[in-house]
Design a protein around this nucleic acid. Structure first.
Length: 669
DNA sequence: TATAAGCGGA
């Protein structure tokens, strides 16, 4: 993407060449460089243009009035070359006479020309021999044709040319066309570059353009860019419509700025101009559940129902899951059985989620009943359904039935996957059927199927539990010189098994060979070193990860800050914290609090204060927690006066809201 | 909007 973006010229570089030269640079053909029409037409072009029975004067009228314009236009755009057009039109051009055909007609012709080179040649002819005055309208159409053909640098060249050669100012359509095509092609940086030029030109982008860009940034997982476009839109003076609101809420939700997202929801609710809809609610619900904030999801869901906002299937699926996570199987069950009354058809995801909830609640009879009901009603089951059910039989200690299900699925041509195998191996091993488990594992190894780290680890743990340490060691030893197993997989297994030396050895080899392509491999190595108090190694892996171009998340930063703290490298910790924040990493509260306590350990109290000030202003930080952390930082530094300052703030907050005063608070004071 | 399934043990 960067390479493509880089190929788009900056606004003031290389003055654009005359059109014909540009074209001949692109195409090998000479003259006007117009390729022949792709489909050879049976209509000789001249006949369309000139009816020999008509005089030139009549011919003019002939074009303007008496025929089906749509048909003529499509014929012209298919059969007429610019050269022919030139030949026909030249008697009328020049000499101060106005062109024969209206500009509207020509633009219409341009817009129907499917070949971008032919359309650009037509534009060139219009502005040259035919004597049309330069128009943004005509340029915009040629621009769109070039963009359709993904001629990015040519298209931006056209925009620069209209200004430099014809003193035309690109208008809203010019910019919107260019930016939205770039966005749709995934060229976010190029699109944003043009957004800035649009600003510089004082052309204001519309809502659609903004939402396109936000959705693209989210698709590319670029949360910080999505948030900055969203904030820009929020700050603009134009009133927002439903789609714009939802798009901003989507950006905030994905970036973890849930408080801002919910603030907007409140605004929509109270404003009555644009009331929230299903998408608004389910976007926020999704984000809450993804972060494990089930209780908040529950209350938002009941608000949604109170307001009679229609539910969609995804919302229902997410809520069945949320009820399950909260051990509210009865509510999940009730919602599940009312899906049809809500006018929705449950999907396989709905069924699978409900099965898992029954299993977690140990409602084995209900699970089996639902599973068989699906079969009776001929609802297509999938590998997830079977994996969930096998797990349930394992939990209810019916390992024979678990095994039977694995055979049943194969009879139905649903192929077991690594998840099926690790589930069943673990069930058999725990049931004392180690031999059966080992046999299946060996069969999988010799079948040449790709080895999955969890599957491998399951077998190792099974051997260890059975006291067969020798077998477990043999499996681990094989990983030191992995054959038929990706080095990344070997590293992950060794690291998770706590084998520091072996994991280090394979990781170094994989890293030197440039074979570490998965961020989770870096993460599990950092976790391994952190667990084993090898903080220097933690930093080493972090630096390798950065060098490999991976963007660390909040969890990684927490591990790194911890390591720097243990090494007493407070300045380096501070530097990483600042750098990551500038690069748009969204920190969890934990990371901020960790930084506070590191600064406290360094006894840099002026930085402590400035960070505290910044965090207090941040609406996403839990204020009670923040005060607790601040108090403990000062307490540890033996500054009890300062500490009591925060304690009293906690008391003040608590007394204004008595329910918030809980025991945990007292115990820490 | 983009939801569902595995190991284990700090």
């Amino acid at each position: 993407m960067a390479a493509l973006a880089a190929s788009i010229p900056s606004p003031h570089s290389s003055p654009s060449l005359p059109l014909k030269q540009r074209l001949s640079a692109i195409s090998a053909t000479t003259k006007l460089a117009i390729p022949p029409p792709s489909s050879s037409s049976s209509f000789p072009s001249k006949q369309v243009w000139r009816n020999p029975n008509l005089s030139r004067h009549q011919h003019h009228r002939y074009i303007d009035r008496s025929i089906n314009m749509d048909e003529l236009l499509s014929l012209l755009s298919r059969t007429t070359t610019a050269e022919e057009l030139h030949a026909v039109m030249s008697p009328y051009a020049g000499g101060g006479r106005t062109p024969l055909l209206s500009l509207r007609f020509m633009v219409s012709l341009l817009s129907r020309e499917p070949d971008w080179r032919r359309s650009v040649a037509l534009l060139d002819w219009m502005l040259g021999p035919a004597g049309y005055s330069p128009s943004v309208f005509a340029y915009n159409v040629a621009l769109r044709n070039a963009l359709r053909a993904r001629q990015w640098s040519f298209a931006s060249g056209l925009v620069l040319e209209m200004r430099s050669h014809h003193s035309l100012s690109p208008d809203r359509v010019t910019y919107s066309t260019l930016i939205s095509y770039l966005a749709r092609a995934g060229l976010l940086d190029a699109a944003l570059l043009w957004l800035r030029r649009m600003d510089a030109d004082r052309v204001s982008p519309d809502l659609v353009l903004h939402t396109t860009l936000i959705e693209l940034a989210l698709k590319l997982n670029d949360h910080s860019k999505a948030v900055s476009i969203a904030s820009r839109l929020l700050g603009s003076s134009s009133p927002l419509d439903l789609v714009a609101f939802n798009s901003i809420i989507h950006a905030f939700s994905r970036a973890g700025l849930l408080r801002e997202a919910q603030q907007l929801l409140v605004e929509m609710r109270e404003n009555h101009q644009v009331p929230p809809d299903t998408v608004t609610y389910s976007t926020i619900l999704c984000a809450l559940v993804a972060r494990g904030r089930y209780l908040e999801a529950l209350s938002l869901f009941s608000e949604m129902r109170d307001r009679r906002v229609p539910l969609d299937l995804m919302t229902v699926n997410i809520m069945i899951d949320a009820y399950g996570q909260l051990d509210m199987a009865r509510e999940a069950d009730r919602l599940f059985w009312s899906v049809r009354k809500l006018g929705l058809e449950p999907s396989i995801v709905t069924y699978n989620t409900m099965l898992r909830v029954y299993g977690d609640a140990e409602l084995f009879g209900e699970a089996i009943h639902l599973f068989r009901l699906m079969q009776r009603k001929e609802i297509q089951q999938n590998v997830v359904t079977y994996n969930t059910m096998i797990k349930i039989y394992g939990k209810s200690l019916e390992h024979e039935k678990a095994g039977n299900l694995m055979q049943e699925m194969q009879l139905k041509e649903i192929q077991p996957n690594a998840i099926t195998y690790s589930t069943i191996i673990s069930i058999w091993a725990r049931a004392g059927k180690l031999e059966r488990a080992a046999k299946l594992f060996q069969k999988l190894r010799s079948s040449g199927a790709e080895i999955d780290p969890v599957l491998y680890q399951t077998m190792i743990v099974a051997y260890e539990r059975a006291g067969l340490v020798g077998h477990a060691k043999r499996l681990l030893h094989e990983l030191k010189h992995p054959e038929g197993i990706a080095k990344e997989t070997a590293v992950a297994i060794l690291a998770n098994a706590g084998r520091v030396e072996e994991a280090t050895w394979v990781f170094r080899q994989a890293a030197e060979a440039g074979e570490v392509k998965d961020i989770t491999v870096f993460k599990c190595m950092m976790d391994l070193y952190s667990r084993n108090r090898r903080h220097v190694n933690v930093i080493e892996v972090f630096e390798k990860m950065r060098a490999a171009g991976f963007f660390p998340d909040s969890e990684v930063i927490a591990v790194v800050l911890n390591a720097y703290g243990k090494l007493q490298e407070f300045d380096k910790a501070d530097a990483v914290y600042k750098e990551m924040e500038e690069e748009g990493c969204i920190f969890s509260d934990k990371v901020h609090f960790q930084m506070l306590s590191l600064l406290g350990m360094k006894r840099d109290f002026s930085r402590v204060e400035s960070l505290l000030e910044k965090l207090s202003a941040d609406p996403n930080i839990d204020k009670k927690e923040l005060n607790l952390v601040a108090a403990s930082v000062y307490e540890r530094a033996n500054k009890l006066d300062e500490a009591s300052r925060f304690v009293s703030q906690i008391r003040k907050r608590a007394s204004s809201n008595p329910l918030a005063l809980d025991l945990e608070l007292y115990s820490s004071v």
